[in-house]
Amino acid sequence: MQDIRKIKDKAIRGLLMLAGLSVILFLGGIFSMLFYYGVQAFKEVSFSGFFLSTNWNPSGYDQSAYGILSMVVSTLFVSLGAMVIAIPIGVGTAAYISEIAKPAVRETLKPIIEILASIPSVVIGFFGIVFLGPLIAKTFGLTAGLNALNGSFLLAFMALPTIISVSEDAIRSVPEEYKAASIALGATKWYTLVKVVIPAASSGIIASIMLGFGRAIGETMTVLMATGNALRMPGNIFDSVRTMTANIAIELGEVPYNTTHYYSLFAVGLILFILTMLVNFMADRITQHVGRHKL
């Protein structure tokens, strides 16, 4: 009897380990596939032609060009714009929920924020086309609202749940003693929040922003629908932009297999993968940092 239980125990432990390892396997598999295909693009495209040129036109009328610079800039442009909008709202909401809101309000707000995270991106993109786009056009006196600003607003909306929930955890884990000490010294609640609590939680808040940023960079459907996808280098927030993700989504469906165009789309995917991995890695390092130094 005892033996069977031991064997069962071992078997289950082994299976669980397999499940855990499979994640690494998938990640490694995806990376090596992207790398294997992506690198082959450089057989025909020079490094400078790929990274430094702003002209992307694989099925050109006269000749092909594979410059990704304006797409990289567009991606960062839209994502950074999203962060400018999302950080104040997100951190403010987190501070409100964890420090100011009454328990009843907090318990209502938290599930609502979680629902926000589960809205499909295609729905948000549709909202961008039919509502936010025309609104932006009207507000700023533009002729069309499918532009970088529209994308930034929608991405901010999508990054908010991540920023709020991670920041809120960080703010909540600031020890009571800090606040008590601050209040005891005669500081107001507002002063305590801004000068004591938020700085003490800053690592967690920064990590939340990095995670939100990673989410924004990788988002595809929303920007594909809402930003107009023009290929040129964006000059201001009212220009139409095409992000790396949108470009892959647009072109991968039609591309003939095993051509330079096909490989260069994988190369774009590889850059994107490295970019989001770096951002997530930095977020992870910052959170670990918090874990070690907290008290």
């Binding site: 694989p58 006269d62 107009g228 996808n229 095409r242 647009i250």
Partner: peptide, 28 residues
Amino acid sequence: RQSNSGTYVYFRDHVVKADYTNNMRNMN
């Protein structure tokens, strides 16, 4: 249209007869 569209290619090859401006908004 976007480059996966036959209309995109037909219009470029038979009407524009050159590359599209990169200001063109590529609709889905």
